Computed example of a mutant assay.
Amino acid sequence: MSSFNEINPAGLAVAIVPDSFKGSVPASGVAEAMKLGVQAAARAANRPVDVRTMPFADGGEGTLDAILAAWEVPARELETTDAIGRPITARFGLSPQGDIAVIEAAEANGLPAVSDVPLRPLEATSYGVGAIISRALDAGVQQIVLCIGGSATTDGGTGLFKALGARFLDARGGQLPDGGGALRDLETIDLSGVDPRIHEVTWRIACDVTNPLTGPSGAAAVFGPQKGADPGQVEILEAGLGRLAQVLVRETGRDIAQVAGMGAAGGLASCLAATCAVELVPGWELVADVLGIHRILADADLVLTGEGRLDTQSLAGKVVNGVRLASPHTADVIVIAGSVQLEENQIEQAGLLAAYSIAPGPASLEELSGNASGLIRATSYNVMRTYLASR
């Protein structure tokens, strides 16, 4: 990809790299609205501006859509099951070259998909995620990028591994039922039928937490209640994950119980990490690498990014922080957000030139969401007119 300056040496180079405004506009829609506003401002000021857009995400909800939009490829679909075994249609992405698969695990084991029924934390399974992985392997990929946030499961990834051919057995040789609640009775793991192709691909897992699999900061204790587990069920899940870790050590020689990040998504990556070489990467960093974000940021004079709410979390591992870190030190970085909840000194200390809310005045969340695209475009226009007037 050529640089900005090779294309338009006399113009201002603007890179637009936003997250979604969750619940309102996907990242691709935010990027398009920002682009329209910037281009309209440039025309009004009669100034040459070269604009490039790249929808972005932090490895959580919306990552698949952002990557598909940036790659300009359609989603691949397959029939699988949700976290309680109901048939669903899930999606995944293949890079234009067909060598990388991007899987958003929540497509199959996501919490929102089972919010219509009482949560079943002991039985919830990641089996459907494994079915997506199997289809990606069928496509002949060389690398699998697995985004694991938003799960309804605490099964240590056993469901995922069942779908790939593993058998989790009790002391009598019977296969355990789905879910983390049954893992207390785990005696052996039969890996003889596991798809050998899992060892032939590169595994990169988007993970933004450092929680271990077990213990007081582990998957069951910290995240179990979010998935409907009461204190008694948390104890059952903790015991099951502990037993899983013990048996994995015996079967594979790898002790993953206290490895940072293994507690993410109910231990979803645990069986993979015990049997394959996996790399856990902060979500925004992984997405940046997959999309090659540095290619459009390298020569930018101005970088526009944004998300639904700019707050202290935005400065610690979210898209805004990732874009700021990836931007050249010579570029000005401006944030456009649904709401801005940072003080002026925090914005300055974060290395941002400015941050703007799309709210034109007092408004409810419903009002802002209903016209978010138009408000993003209008705010981008005003920001760009002001910025051009200062140069």
Rank of each mutant, 00 (worst) to 15 (best):
V335K: 00
P362L: 09
A300Y: 06
A277H: 15
E348M: 10
T330I: 08
S369Q: 13
N345Y: 14
L297G: 12
V281I: 11
T312K: 14
A337E: 00
D311W: 01
G370W: 09
S314H: 03
I347D: 05
C276V: 09
Q341W: 07
G361F: 10
G306P: 07
A355M: 00
T275N: 11
A300I: 04
A363W: 10
L325M: 12
E279T: 14
Y356I: 09
G361D: 10
Q346P: 07
T305S: 04
G306Y: 05
G322R: 03
N345M: 14
L272W: 00
S373T: 14
P362C: 11
V287A: 04
I358G: 13
L365W: 14
E344G: 12
V287W: 02
V319C: 05
S327C: 03
V323I: 07
H294G: 15
V319S: 02
S373R: 15
A326W: 06
E366K: 12
S373Q: 14
G306K: 01
G317C: 09
D289A: 15
R295V: 11
A363H: 14
K318V: 07
V319R: 04
C271S: 01
D299G: 10
S369N: 13
P328M: 04
E279L: 09
V333W: 03
V290N: 02
L304P: 09
Q346S: 08
Q349C: 10
K318G: 12
L368C: 05
A359I: 06
E285W: 11
L342K: 05
N345S: 14
I358C: 10
T275E: 07
A277P: 10
G351I: 05
Q313A: 12
A372C: 13
D332S: 11
Q346Y: 03
G317S: 06
Q341I: 09
A331T: 00
D299V: 04
A372W: 04
L310V: 07
N371Y: 13
V278C: 08
T305Q: 06
V340N: 01
D311I: 00
I347L: 02
S369E: 13
L286G: 11
L315R: 07
V278G: 06
L304M: 03
A363T: 15
L368K: 02
D332H: 07
T312L: 11
P360A: 09
C271D: 00
D311H: 04
S314L: 02
C271K: 00
V278T: 03
A316W: 12
L352V: 05
V278K: 02
E285V: 15
P328V: 01
L272Y: 07
Q341K: 11
C271N: 01
N371H: 11
V340H: 00
A273Q: 02
Q346M: 09
E344L: 10
L304I: 05
S339D: 08
R309I: 08
G317P: 04
V287F: 01
H329L: 13
E367Y: 12
R309W: 08
E307Q: 00
G308Q: 02
D289V: 15
G338R: 04
I296T: 08
